[in-house]
């Protein structure tokens, strides 16, 4: 039986008076590829950011790999279980690509320099940027930076990788190179949660799609159900606008 890797239970989040997540319940199974879509401001990003406590829910519970995530244990639990890829890449600009990739394995996962560098080279091969190991992030294109950021996330070898709009800050012509890497990853047994506006990607890769609007999940289902015959009017509207 496949276990739940992530579970959100009655999660509410307020930013001041703004109620951005309204009683969200969601489970993600081990190895599942979950794609979250919806209009901007609907709480998609906040939802994934609650999964690694970059945002702490105002109320409700988050369980990761069977353990409850709390303010106290977040650093240790996140270190072992999840990685994240950001819209703005967030590579460390004062370090080479190699240092970006080996920092966490060496300092947090107790690998030797040699082991960490072998790991880094392996994942640089996966994203096709082995030749950029000694480059500094700012000298790379957006697409390349994001592929490096994905490699950095993979170097932690966690069961869960979260993607928060990984292609939204990219030039149109570099989006595909990042999506290709993510499609490749989807064949592994990693649990992936992806917030995206790339419907083609969602259709091709998702095991399940969740649609959010106004801080709530208003529809979820397989890609086929979703794109062929969505039941919710709000979803139909959204898809109508985005797919032409």
């Amino acid at each position: 039986m496949i276990s739940n890797m992530i579970k959100l239970e009655n999660v509410n989040k307020y930013f001041g008076d703004l109620h951005v997540l309204k009683d969200v319940n969601l489970t993600v199974k081990e190895g599942e590829k979950l794609v979250i879509i919806g209009p901007s401001g609907s709480g998609k990003s906040t939802t994934v950011r609650c999964m690694n406590y970059l945002e702490e829910p105002t109320s409700g519970h988050v369980y990761i790999d069977g353990r409850e995530l709390t303010h106290r244990n977040k650093t240790a639990l996140i270190r072992e279980t999840t990685s994240m890829v950001f819209q703005q890449f967030n590579l460390y600009p004062h370090m080479t690509v190699m240092k970006n990739l080996t920092l966490a394995p060496m300092k947090l996962h107790h690998k030797s320099k040699k082991e960490a560098e072998e790991l880094a080279c392996h994942y640089l091969d996966v994203v096709g940027l082995r030749d950029k190991a000694e480059a500094y992030p700012t000298t790379l294109s957006g697409g390349q930076q994001q592929r490096i950021a994905i490699a950095r996330a993979l170097c932690a070898e966690t069961k869960i990788v979260l993607f928060d709009e990984p292609t939204s800050a990219l030039d149109p012509e570099t989006i595909q190179e990042v999506l290709d890497v993510m499609i490749k990853l989807a064949k592994e047994n990693i649990t992936m949660v992806v917030v995206t506006h790339e419907m083609g990607f969602a259709r091709q890769v998702a095991d399940r799609i969740v649609f959010m609007a106004d801080g709530q999940i208003i529809e979820e289902g397989t890609p086929d159900h979703f794109f062929e015959n969505p039941s919710n009017e709000r979803v139909k509207q959204f898809l109508g606008k985005i797919i032409r």
Binding site: T75, I78, R79, M84, F86, H94, A104
Partner: peptide, 27 residues
């Protein structure tokens, strides 16, 4: 230092002191 740098460091599981020492202060 951009907020994203703090978030990336947190998402990797660096403690406060490690975040400051390895990632924020050098910048």
């Amino acid at each position: 230092v951009p907020k994203g740098q703090f978030e990336a460091a947190r998402s990797q599981g660096f403690s406060y002191v490690q975040r400051m020492f390895y990632i924020i202060l050098p910048q």
